[in-house]
Design a protein around this nucleic acid. Structure first.
Length: 485
DNA sequence: TCTACTGACACCTTTGAAACGC
DNA sequence: AGCGTTTCAAAGGTGTCAGTAG
């Protein structure tokens, strides 16, 4: 949860970046097949995001030039695109190098996320920091086993509205606040080898969210009653011969959530209690259930001696089982899955770039040595007060409008959770889920004019079609994706 | 009055050190 | 001595609720 530029002031504020190339989603996914992809690999990095990860991307030099290819570099996994500019030759402002398209990521606990998503995920944020539940847990594949990588998470504002719970549903309620200090959560294992990341699922369970803009602990700072989309980044930190450089980022639409200081939807509360092992005490049979709490209050009022807690009772019967894992997830709704992700990016041209610290990115090195030095910095502000990232300014395409206006469809009843796949949502009558998500995918800058849509911030499970609107123009996907990577 | 937020609370899991056995 | 397992207590993650601020 640190801002790299804070740690590496010598890198300066940001690099000039080449304007995001057109292509967007189509550059990342074969047209017509995108719906199959589970994770969304963002093809281009917008200026702000790029600056955030700049220190992790050794291939860029300060002048925005690509360094020349290393003759000793190992072969690229895929044919490298021609390098029109030789080493040292001036380039248009460079975009960060990308990891090869073979790098893939999937969401491990996707079914759990989908169940929350179907109701409208809420995340508690507190001054001292609160963990996410469900937690972000991903599997990575396609990395160079020997090269070093960092895994990072940041949060992208979704929509530019603030939201309000209206008893049964969420509604947009005014403009979003100015973005909080921009921070990145760095997985504590970072930097680690590709083999390490690929060995087992990577969990970001230690990630904490806070609404304290002065937070000194490095938690991710968010505004309450706003909607966010987590984004996972793989950043090459170099390896033997400089392999592994480059960046790739992934979003999982079902992980979008609304921040709250207290749960609004009772359904979410119940689901959290049922799913989160830490909330076990609040389950029906728990000692912190409503029934037990009421009984406790009565006893207290009567002045009774406290009965032994369940913990004590259990421990008398035998060892407290604190080692067992979380309870098994309830059966997942069928047919909610996307197909495994693939990605199709031009090879990043990573290994032609030198690696300053013996194969390890200096930023990674510095993080290991001075983790406390990472703290958030306010990113450059865009004209609207938002960071000038397409991700951060998606309002045009995706901002949910207040529900209840004439012409606004009533809140859609929750879908049958046994089948999250939506096939019959009338276009534009009820918003394509993707539109809201689409903003996260970068819609808004170069996409088509945003249709005037009104819909609540939460919709049932993201419909697969949101990834691949049928044919052109589909601009909000095509052009929109360029904002993220 | 309403809404959002805060802090205390009880219950629970996780974690890591100490104790123990082989 | 070294290693693996068990035990135990502290730390910290939960939702709830009453109180507070605006």
């Amino acid at each position: 949860m640190y801002h790299p530029s804070e740690m590496f002031p010598h890198f300066g504020g940001s690099f000039a970046l080449r304007p995001a190339a057109h292509g967007g989603l189509s550059a990342g996914f074969p047209q017509g097949q995108a719906a199959q992809y589970e994770a969304f690999r963002c093809p281009d990095l917008d200026g702000v995001s790029a600056a955030k990860f700049e220190p992790f991307c050794p291939p860029l030099d300060r002048a925005g030039r690509l360094l020349g290819p290393s003759p000793a570099g190992p072969p690229l996994p895929l044919p490298a695109p021609p390098l029109p500019y030789g080493g040292g030759q001036q380039l248009p402002p460079a975009e960060p190098p990308r990891l090869p398209p073979s790098v893939r990521m999937s969401l491990e606990n996707r079914e759990l996320w989908k169940r929350f998503c179907a109701v409208g995920t809420e995340m508690i944020i507190t001054k001292s920091g609160r963990r996410m539940f469900p937690q972000l847990k991903v599997s990575v594949a396609g990395l160079d086993p020997e090269a070093k990588y960092l895994l990072l998470v940041d949060m992208v504002p979704a929509g530019a509205s603030r939201y309000k719970w209206q008893g049964r549903h969420w509604e947009a309620s005014g403009k979003a606040e100015l973005p909080p200090p921009d921070r990145v959560y760095i997985h504590p294992d970072s930097p680690a080898s590709g083999a390490h990341w690929m060995r087992q699922p990577v969990s970001f369970h230690r990630l904490k969210l806070t609404n304290n803009t002065l937070d000194p602990h490095g938690h991710l700072i968010l505004h309450s009653m706003h909607r966010y989309q987590p984004r996972v980044h793989v950043v090459g930190a170099g390896g033997p011969g400089g392999r592994g450089g480059g960046c790739a980022s992934f979003t999982f639409p079902e992980t979008a959530f609304l921040t709250v200081t207290a749960y609004q939807s009772p359904k979410i509360t119940q689901m959290k209690i049922e799913s989160n092992p830490f909330a076990k005490g609040f389950r029906e049979n728990g000692m912190n259930s409503k029934r037990e709490r009421d009984a406790r209050i009565k006893r207290k009022m009567r002045g009774d001696v406290a009965e032994p807690t369940r913990n004590e009772a259990d421990c008398k019967r035998g060892p407290c089982d604190s080692t067992q894992g979380p309870p098994p997830e309830p059966p997942a709704p069928p047919d909610c899955s996307f197909h495994p992700i693939s990605s199709s990016y031009p090879p990043g041209g990573n290994e032609e770039l030198g690696c300053p610290l013996g194969g390890v990115n200096p930023s990674a090195e510095a993080y290991v040595q001075h983790p406390a030095a990472f703290h958030g910095l306010q990113p450059p502000q865009g004209p609207a007060g938002y960071a000038s990232s397409p991700c951060a300014a998606p309002e045009a395409a995706a901002a949910p409008k207040p529900v209840g206006d004439p012409g606004c469809p009533p809140a859609k009843p929750l879908p049958d959770q046994s089948n999250c796949r939506t096939t019959s949502a009338p276009p534009l009558t009820y918003p394509p889920y993707g539109l809201d998500v689409g903003c996260l995918l970068g819609a808004g800058l170069d996409g088509p004019p945003a249709p005037e849509l009104r819909f609540p911030p939460f919709l049932p499970c993201p419909a697969p079609r949101l990834y691949a609107p049928p044919g052109p123009p589909a601009g909000y996907l095509e052009g929109g994706n360029k904002g993220l990577f």
